[in-house]
Every structure is written in structure tokens, then in C-alpha cells.
Design a protein around this nucleic acid. Structure first.
Lengths: 266, 266
DNA sequence: CGCCGCATTGACGTTCGTCAAGTCTAGTGG
DNA sequence: CCACTAGACTTGACGAACGTCAATGCGGCG
């Protein structure tokens, strides 16, 4: 489909790191650098394909700046005013919502090339938190500019619609998972989804490093951290995966798929 | 906020019916009639507010036709080609996704003024079924036209974005519910949500008729139908609601709210 | 009037949550 | 370089919540 430029090459020794080694030069303005999409290697992921050169030039204006987010800190928070969407350049995020009485729920994990902040459009305020699970950098795309440009560039308009629709469909899938699957099925589906997205970014099909804790996985999957841990152990016993803390190697992808979608017979 | 024109009036005797009595005249073309938004009483719900007269005129072109959907039949199905969004005029729908092995999950219940079909945009094909739970009528809005018009009418563009964002936020809420709430909390949240949306359409704050079976409620809430039934019975015992089959009267809204969001102290 | 789908209720089983103890690892500072 | 510590993870025992299975009741529609 498309050629990954940065990663790939030597899997095994180098684990699936999304983070690019941080540039040591200190930015003058706090966390903002000026750049362009047209020669960004993630363009295929966050921007529409098949643009004409003139359109490509316009598209560059979508990104107002970049912003670095340190591990553990938030890109935006529930209640904050919504101004921009963010395309992830490097790093890994979680988004989570909270109920009034303090419970919270991880609603997604996002990686390079994915866009976050869509929740803020309805009410001009964000309704969830976006937290960096490792040092990250995002492209800040003021939504006003996106709307403006997508009136001129049809492909961009279409693209924005698709991104939002994709998020809706993804959440439908999570609802299916939360509503009707058992612990093993949930974790299997989770691993397959993660590794598939990483693979699309040039990483291994069988090896991954979890950027989140068991508790965060559990929150996403509607399970307690102990259940996540036990289920990992079960998979290890069954020879389906190897797990060493956050390093996971999938030994039998078919078995995982079979857990998610049990075939009754044939 | 806005004046409901059709319902309201005499609650109690007339239960919360969304359906308008069907027009007896048989349509010539199968289920399609030609109409305009500009004088539709649901405009405030599915269209942007504060349009200029000239914009209003343009907006009328968004709706290509209307379509009647009989109770139990589908408006669209998983796998079908996506062409249009649908604004519900009358009736009540459920949307549901299915996993390959046959399990299915209700992802939402939609009523008059709400828009369905957003899932189809990403892949040009629908990824869920939309089933009418009572005889219904929808406005067919070809997505190409929507995109075209929203390039000209900024308010429409913004509106489309908001509708999609709203759906994302709604699903975030459902994920919180499915991931972290217990049966009573889920059902309480469900009832409050339904009655609130009905109230916004001019119906009673305390009385409603469920258009769906216990099984469908259960699917939506990630519970089995027996659990839904038992939880209803529990609420009745506690004097929080009256239930007679699908007729529900809420006796103590605060108690329901308290179940959803337990206050520890003060 | 009788049938069928939907709903209720009870008894029992399974899965997952809770609580608690103990282990491992990465990061820190001496 | 190593010991120490805090946070993350694992594992076990037990219990609660919900699912499963089955019997029965009810109401709407033909």
C-alpha cells in the first residue's frame, strides 16, 4: 500500500518504537516549531492522497505549528476550549473520559498519523483528556483553517469527513467488544488491533511494546488490571504469546483471531 | 429553547408517541415523496439555526426525497453501498453492528430529528444495520449534495461537523457506560437519556413508551434481557419507576440520577 | 378465542472483581 | 557500581454480579 520510510529494517533487536529520538535543540517559543506537510513522511496517514501540487501547497497551511508533549502530560483536557485538531507526529496517546463521580474510561489509544481532538467540535469544548503515554510531538491544525481550506480543496473536505466517520466506526467496534465479548476475546482483539496498526506503520507484525499500563488496558477493555494480567498469563500458558512486562511477541496470530471470532465448525 | 409544534398538550392519556399517524395516500414511486426543509417543524433538530433566507432555499436541495420504512425493515444494511445520510422525520430506529460469528450489538437508538448513516462515509459502504422499530419516515440526503452545499453554506459545513462530533461524544459516553457501570447504573442512565431526548421533542419528562424489546435494551447496555428485566423490577420495588410492559413512568428522577452518579457524601 | 412473541421470575453456574500478598523492574541516589 | 525504592505487575483465595437455563405469565394480533 505505502512505503514506510523511517522504521522497519531490523526488527527483533530494535523493538517497535514509535518515538523518534528527540531533537536536542531547545525550542525558543514554548513547544512550538514551524513546519510543512508537503514533505512529511506521515502525510499518507493524516492527509488525503492524490493532491495536485497546488492543493498540496494549500494544505501546508493547515498546520499552524508543532507542539511537543512530555510523557504524562496532557495535550488537552476535558472542559478546555476547542480550537484545533492534532495530528500525531511521534509518540503515543490515550484519550479518556470521566464520569462526575470520578470513574474514568480510556476511550482510545492513538499513534503516529492519527488525528485527535474531534470530540471538541460539537460544543467548542473538549469532553475528554488526551494524555501522552510517551514523549510526543503533534501538528496543531486550527479547526477554522481546516474548515476554510476544506471548502476549497474537495479532497480535504472528503478526508475530514472520512476521519470522523472512521472514528465513529471504530467506536462502534469498541462497543461491540465491551458489550458482548469476554475477557480473552477483548484482549485478543486489542492485541490484534494494535499490532495491525503498528504494522501499517512499518513495524513488526508479531512484536510490540505496550505503551500503556495494565490498568489503562483494562480501562479501555472494561476489565480490571488483574484480569488483564491473568488473561495475558493464560495466553502465555497456551503458547499464543510471549510476554515480558510490556514487551509482547505474538507466536500464533491465528489462535488470537480464533479467540476473537470463534469458528464453530467448518 | 424551541417550540415543539406537534406533540405535547395532553400527556398521560396519550403516551409518548413519536410516530405521526401515517398518511393513507399510497405513494406512486416506491416509498419516495418530494418535500422541502424550509417549513419542516423538525428543522431545528437536523439543520443549522440562523440561516439567511437565501441559504434556507439552498438547504432545501439537501433532501432529495423521503422514504418510508416499515417497522422491522431496514433503512440500510451492513455492506450496502453508502450514498446518503438520513434525517429521521418520524419513527424510531436502532443501529446495530455484528461480529463475524453472529453476535450483534445495538450501537444506538435514534428518534425524530436525528441523523443516521454516518458510519458509511469512511468506506463508501455501511458498516451497520439501521432497523425501524416502528413505522418511520426519513429524509434522504445524498451525501454528495451535502458536501457540495456545505462548501457554499458555512453554517451547513459547521453543522455536519457538529453532528459527527456529537456522535463521537455520544459513543464515548456509551463506552464509559459499558466499561465501568453496573447493571442498575446502565439502565438508569439509559432511561434518563431517553426521557431527556423525548422531552426535548415536547414529550413528557416522566413518562415514556419503549420502542424496543428488553433484549435490544440489553444488547445496547451490554446486559442480558433477564438482567434488564430484573433491574426494572428492582426499580419498581424501590418505587423509582412504574413499569407496565413497555410503558414506563419515572416516579423519582433524582433517585435515577443518584444511581448513575452516586454521591458519596457532601 | 387461541396463539406466539415478549416479559418475568427462580435456581444455579461462570466470569470477573476484590482484597491481599508477594515479585519484578527501572530509575535514583549514594 | 550497587543498593534501594516506588510503581507496575503477578498470583491466589474468595465473593458478588451477572449469565444461563427453565418454567411460567401476560398481552396483542389475527
Amino acid at each position: 500500500m505505502f512505503e514506510p520510510s523511517t522504521p522497519s529494517g531490523k526488527p527483533g533487536e530494535a523493538h517497535a518504537h514509535i518515538a523518534i529520538t528527540p531533537v536536542p535543540t531547545a525550542p525558543l517559543s514554548p513547544h512550538t516549531i514551524k513546519v510543512a506537510c508537503s514533505n512529511c513522511n506521515l502525510r499518507e496517514l493524516c492527509m488525503p492522497l492524490g493532491l495536485s501540487p497546488s492543493e498540496l501547497e494549500k494544505i501546508d497551511d493547515v498546520v499552524a505549528s508543532r507542539r511537543k508533549v512530555k510523557r504524562g502530560s496532557t495535550l488537552f483536557r476535558n472542559g478546555e476550549r476547542f480550537t484545533s485538531l492534532y495530528a500525531i507526529r511521534t509518540g503515543f496517546f490515550k484519550t479518556c473520559v470521566a464520569s462526575e463521580d470520578g470513574r474514568d474510561q480510556v476511550t482510545g489509544f492513538q499513534m503516529a498519523g492519527e488525528v485527535i481532538g474531534l470530540d471538541g467540535i460539537v460544543n467548542d469544548h473538549h469532553t475528554c483528556d488526551a494524555v501522552a503515554l510517551e514523549d510526543a510531538e503533534v501538528c496543531v491544525m486550527p479547526f477554522e483553517r481546516i474548515e476554510e481550506l476544506s471548502r476549497e480543496v474537495n479532497a480535504l473536505q472528503r478526508h475530514v469527513h472520512k476521519i470522523m466517520s472512521r472514528e465513529i466506526v471504530r467506536e462502534n467496534g469498541v462497543m461491540l467488544l465491551l458489550g458482548s465479548m469476554r475477557a480473552e476475546e477483548r484482549l485478543a482483539a486489542f492485541l490484534l488491533n494494535l499490532v495491525q496498526r503498528l504494522h501499517a506503520r512499518g513495524f513488526s507484525q508479531s512484536e510490540l511494546v505496550l505503551r500503556m499500563t495494565r490498568e489503562e488496558i483494562g480501562s479501555y477493555l472494561g476489565l480490571k488490571l488483574e484480569t488483564v494480567s491473568r488473561t495475558f498469563s493464560k495466553f502465555v500458558e497456551d503458547g499464543i504469546v510471549e510476554v515480558k512486562q510490556r514487551h509482547v511477541r505474538i507466536l500464533n496470530t491465528d489462535a488470537l483471531k480464533d479467540i476473537v471470532n470463534p469458528k464453530v465448525c467448518n
